[in-house]
């Protein structure tokens, strides 16, 4: 089963990477007001139970994939 985790800097958290990206995009002539840079983790999971997978992914995010102090996460499990 395929799943994707999106990890983002929480709102209000300074994101110097996003600022650098925004500034570069503006230099290229794009009208970008803000950019925030996060992370995508694509996973291939064993098992076929989406509910169970969600619960596991939640724990993966809490323990390792995100730092809850500064990052939020979003889980999606691909429909078969």
């Amino acid at each position: 089963m395929r799943a994707t985790v999106l990890v983002r800097p929480k709102p209000g958290i300074l994101d110097p990477q996003g600022e650098a990206v925004q500034s570069s995009l503006r230099h290229l002539g794009f009208a970008v007001e803000e950019a925030r840079v996060g992370r995508v983790v694509d996973l291939e999971l064993e098992g076929e139970d989406p509910e169970r997978a969600r619960a596991e992914l939640e724990r993966m995010c809490q323990q390792l994939l995100a730092n809850p102090l500064i990052e939020s996460f979003e889980i999606s499990v691909a429909a078969e």
């Binding site: 110097p16 990477q17 650098a20 730092n67 102090l69 500064i70």
Partner: peptide, 16 residues
């Protein structure tokens, strides 16, 4: 910090 033995966290330098 990651282990929770100290409070807070360390992020990329503001200057990058």
């Amino acid at each position: 910090c990651e282990a929770g033995l100290l409070p807070g966290t360390l992020r990329p330098n503001a200057s990058l």
